[in-house]
Nucleic acid binder design. Structure first.
Length: 600
DNA sequence: CTAGGGTTAG
């Protein structure tokens, strides 16, 4: 048999020898612009020849050539080749071409449906995935175990809980629930839809669990604010004989960073080294973020510096790590370093750098950042604009904040809330309220943060009754007050000197008051020098969060403001008895939840 | 041909 490329002809003794040498021809991809022809291969040979040819294809032009040849040889209805064709077209993001070939195929069976569904999934066209799945059912083609992972992934991405549940029912109907890929697909679907309870039912029902099953359930809890449960399951996983991999550890590191628990998080790094993943770039990004969130920015920076390749996400993790932990100068240095090295920042980089500028509080820096954004492709990015509004407000220019606000198109609730909060922090309560009315006229629905902004605005400008009304109108928008709203109300009442009302308010709360609520009461007591009530609030705070030194300092300041120096001394003794020093903040798991990771 | 992870405005 022989292969002809335009005028050149190579002869091979057997088809397998020809296929072996195909690699050689395609390493010069320009050759493929000429026509490639194989001398009449038999039916079996044709399948391996064309699938090999497809695997070497790099462009749509290659696909078209093969497509034409298939027609010439009457192979257009060969399901094996056409399935491959659809898969390869999808890999090359030529999904429309894949669809055309799919539509031309007469009796589509399950492999073809799977291929086109996979194609839409690869191209992130999730609506089409779901649509093709339902067309497949209309066509009375039974799905197989390869169909569902794609469908479930799409349902998860679309947060289409109802579709996913329907697929779940189909899976049972076909008896595929034991299949590892299908079961894990279901698990991750429920996790993405934040249906942790359903996910847990699936997880607990698994007859065998692999590293993917464990990782899915761990990240489910880690990403829904239940890091302790995530870590408990991780401990269980370590007791099983499933081997850890880098993705599992990334999920675990997310749980530790939410806990801001560096003691345990530091052990995680030991574990990473132990299983030999310390140079995994993605794990390094996660660890950089973990160290940053635990306030150990310098440790994070040393991880960052050790990396040879700096992915933009790594830069982002480092910049936001610096920005959020009181090192705005370092964050902005990294940002300018990126610019000078011609590394293109993405929207997250710019968001974090704007945040750093806000933390810095310098109006000059803020203006520089604003100018940078104006001349970049991020000038119309709504998230960046929101950050700019907040930045100007924090850097002291409510006028410039308003200017950014005015030029922001299609303002969403976050943009409005940022501006309301900006006014609020400046004590411009009336302006905040006016803006809220404008927002309602613009038919933008307020959310929990909008109301927090309004309550803050009223609190900072002494508009007690207005704030009270806003708080109570939350329910008209179907919003349940959260701890931050209760804390805002205690601040509103306490700041204005209504300490009794603040206390009454706390006793009528339908939920247990959190640290932030008692903290607000304590600071109000400090303003109005009310020692007795302040001591009461402090006791509550010590009980809730015994190791946080800030509360002790607050109480001490209260005593100092009234000249009660014996009180100041008492606090110092109390702190010493608990082994606390003034500038160390510790964060530990609740008793009984300590997790030990042994490092070999 | 199929399942899990990292940065992210108020």
């Amino acid at each position: 048999m022989s292969l002809t490329i335009t005028s050149q002809r190579w002869t091979f003794k057997s088809p397998s020898l020809l296929l072996k040498n195909l690699n050689f021809f395609f390493s010069f991809s320009y050759l493929f612009n000429c026509s490639i022809h194989c001398s009449s291969p038999s039916s079996i040979d044709a399948e391996s020849f064309y699938t090999s040819l497809l695997e070497k294809s790099l462009r749509k032009a290659h696909l078209t050539q093969i497509h034409n040849q298939l027609y010439k040889r009457g192979l257009q209805n060969n399901g094996f080749i056409i399935t491959k064709f659809i898969n390869i077209s999808s890999n090359l993001k030529e999904i429309d071409y894949a669809r055309q070939v799919f539509d031309e195929f007469p009796d589509k069976y399950v492999f073809l449906w799977n291929a086109i569904i996979r194609g839409y999934s690869m191209c992130n066209m999730l609506d089409e995935v779901v649509e093709m799945y339902s067309r497949m059912q209309t066509a009375c083609v039974s799905p197989d175990t390869f169909t569902f992972p794609h469908v479930l992934k799409a349902c998860g991405g679309l947060l289409a809980v109802r579709y996913g549940r329907a697929a779940h029912a189909h899976i049972y109907k076909h008896g595929f629930q034991e299949d590892m890929f299908v079961a894990n697909g279901l698990l991750s679907f429920y996790v993405k839809c934040e249906e942790n309870n359903s996910a847990r039912v699936i997880f607990d029902g698994l007859t065998s669990k692999n590293v993917v099953s464990w990782t899915s359930i761990i990240s489910g809890y880690a990403q829904s604010g239940q890091p302790v449960e995530a870590l408990r399951i991780f401990m269980e996983m370590r007791g099983s004989d499933v081997k850890l991999d880098s993705i599992a550890l990334v999920s675990v590191s997310k749980a530790y960073s939410d806990l801001e628990d560096l003691n345990q998080g530091g052990c995680l790094y030991g574990l990473v080294i132990k299983i030999g993943h310390e140079f995994d770039p993605d794990l390094r990004i996660a660890l950089t973020s973990l160290y940053s969130k635990c306030g150990q920015v310098m440790a994070a920076k040393s991880l960052f510096d050790q990396m040879k390749v700096h992915d933009v996400i790594l830069w982002n993790a480092m910049i936001s790590g610096f920005a959020k932990n009181g090192h705005p100068n370092e964050a902005l240095e990294l940002f300018t370093e990126m610019i000078s090295k011609n590394i293109p920042p993405d929207t997250v980089t710019v968001q974090s750098s704007v945040l750093a500028s806000a933390q810095l509080g310098s109006l000059d820096q803020a203006k520089w950042m604003d100018t940078y954004v104006k001349n970049s492709k991020f000038s119309n990015d709504i998230i960046v604009s929101t950050a700019l509004i907040d930045m100007y407000a924090k850097c002291g220019s409510i006028e410039l904040a308003h200017e950014v606000f005015n030029r922001t198109l299609d303002k969403d609730v976050v943009v409005w809330s940022a501006m309301i909060m900006g006014y609020g922090l400046h004590g411009w309560g009336r302006e905040a309220i006016d803006l809220f009315n404008e927002m309602k006229d613009a038919r933008v629905l307020p959310n929990d943060i909008t109301f927090l902004g309004l309550i803050t605005a009223c609190s900072h400008s002494g508009l007690v009754e207005e704030g009270w009304e806003f708080f109570h109108s939350m329910k008209d928008y179907g919003l349940e007050p959260q701890q931050k709203h209760y804390a805002g109300m205690v601040d509103l009442l306490g700041r204005a000197g209504y300490l009794d009302r603040a206390c009454n308010f706390i006793t009528t709360m339908p939920v247990e008051p959190s640290v932030s609520v008692w903290g607000a009461l304590l600071s109000a007591c400090k303003i109005h020098r009310c020692v007795m009530l302040g001591e009461y609030a402090a006791e509550k705070l010590f009980a809730l969060d015994p190791l946080y030194t800030g509360h002790y300092v607050q109480l001490s300041n209260l005593y100092a403001s009234t000249g009660m120096w014996d009180g100041v001394a008492k606090v110092r003794v109390l702190m010493k008895s608990k082994g606390l020093t003034k500038d160390v903040g510790l964060c530990e798991l609740p008793p009984g939840n300590q997790i030990d990771i042994e490092v070999g």
